[in-house]
Structures are given as C-alpha cells and as structure tokens.
C-alpha cells in the first residue's frame, strides 16, 4: 500500500510517545504524575486510531477513556492521597502477599521470555500475512458504525452483547452503592457525611499529592 510520508512520520512519532509515556506510568513514583502520563499516552493512541481510519474509535478514546475513566482514577488518587514514595520497600506485612502477582522473579522471567520470544515470532508471522486494503465505503465513520450496530436488531449478531453490557454497568452501580453503605444498611445521606469524625477520611495527617509534587 502506498502511504504518504506524513502518515509514516506521524505513526513513528506517536508510537515513540506512547511507549515513553507508558514506561513512565509504570516507573514514576508519584501516582498523580503517573495518571497524567497515562492520559498523555492516550492522545497519540487516538492519533494512530485516526490513521487506521477508525475516526469514531479515536474520538471515543479521548472522550470516554481519557475523559471519563482517567478522570475517575485522578479523582480517587486525589481523594485518598497515597504517599508519593510507594516504590520504597514496604515495612512489615508478609512477603507472600498477593502471591499470584508477586511471584517476583517468576513473573519477571515470564515477561522477559515473552518479550524476547513471542514478539519477534508474531512480528515475523504478521509480516508474512497478506494485506488487504479497506474496501468498505465510509469505513469507521459514525454513520457506518451506527448501521453496523443498529440495523435489523432482531437478526443483528451484535445486539445481545450490546444489551448485556447494560447489566454489567448496573452491577458496577450496585457494587459502588453497596460499598458506600454505613453500618445500619443505609446509603450515605448528605447530612451524615461529616457527622461521624471517626469514619471521616484522615486527610489532614497526610501531605497532598500536589504539595508532594512541589516539594520535589
């Protein structure tokens, strides 16, 4: 496929930014900065989606992912103020904690193996595959996706999963409601939020994430 140099350069630069920003997410100690880095990595991802003729997906990436989900993360991080030096070796607690994840050496071994073996394997396999040009008119545009989703709902294979996801979201709502219940089984009223000092969040003792950032 002949591709214009502009596309090539945009792809290469976006890929570079995504990789660097994602590495920053897992390496930076300050949680607020890590979240901002993840948002930074979403912007060039959306650019790549637009290069892949997935314009609606690119818009969703910004609107829903960077806008809504990351907003949730930022909010919670700001709310509970985890200490910015979480990378330090933890004091106390059993080492076997979260063993499935924290197999330590084994986990890194698996990652190293996958990195050195699977990626080149798949790279070569993908290079040998035949490439087809996009044939559908208006590929990836909103009207086209809407037709795919909502045409002939009784015989559309996508209907069931689309309806089921609404139940998934309901479960999320019920879970969040349940987790906010107080002892009596009541949900939190507006009046009762600050009346019980023992259950209020101990924000005062800790430094806020912004202060910590400034101190660095």
């Amino acid at each position: 496929m002949p591709v214009s140099p502009l596309v090539e350069i945009t792809f290469a630069l976006s890929a570079l930014v995504i990789l660097l920003a994602s590495l920053a997410v897992v390496l930076i100690k300050n949680p607020v900065r890590a979240t901002l880095m993840l948002i930074l990595s979403f912007l060039p991802t959306s650019l790549i989606y637009i290069l892949l003729q997935a314009s609606f997906v690119g818009i969703l990436q910004i609107l829903v992912y960077a806008g809504a989900i990351m907003m949730l993360f930022t909010f919670v991080i700001m709310m509970i103020n985890p200490s910015p030096n979480e990378g330090d070796a933890p004091a106390g607690g059993s080492e076997s904690a979260f063993t499935g994840l924290r197999g330590g050496l084994v986990g890194f071994l698996i990652i190293g193996l996958a990195g050195t073996m699977v990626i080149p394997m798949i790279y070569h396999a993908a290079a040998s595959l035949p490439v087809q040009a996009v044939t559908k008119p208006h590929f990836g545009e909103l009207s086209s996706i809407a037709a795919l989703l909502f045409e002939d709902p009784a015989n559309n294979p996508l209907t069931v999963s689309f309806e089921l996801i609404s139940f998934l979201i309901l479960v999320g709502i019920i879970a969040a409601l349940n987790f906010s219940r107080r002892k009596g089984g009541q949900t939190v009223d507006e009046d009762s939020i600050s009346t019980r000092p023992t259950e209020a969040l101990p924000i005062v003792k800790r430094q806020s994430g912004i202060e910590a950032m400034e101190r660095k």
């Binding site: 294979p157 999963s161 089921l164 996801i165 139940f167 998934l168 479960v171 999320g172 019920i174 349940n178």
Partner: peptide, 17 residues
C-alpha cells in the same frame, strides 16, 4: 466472540463484587 467476552465479564465482575 463479542457475546462470549461480555458474558465472561458478566460472570467475572459480579464474582469480584
């Protein structure tokens, strides 16, 4: 695949909850 994935998640996420 789509139905399978969503049904799998609709089994998993309530289990965590």
């Amino acid at each position: 695949i789509a139905t399978l994935f969503i049904a799998y998640e609709l089994v998993s996420i309530p289990s965590y909850v």
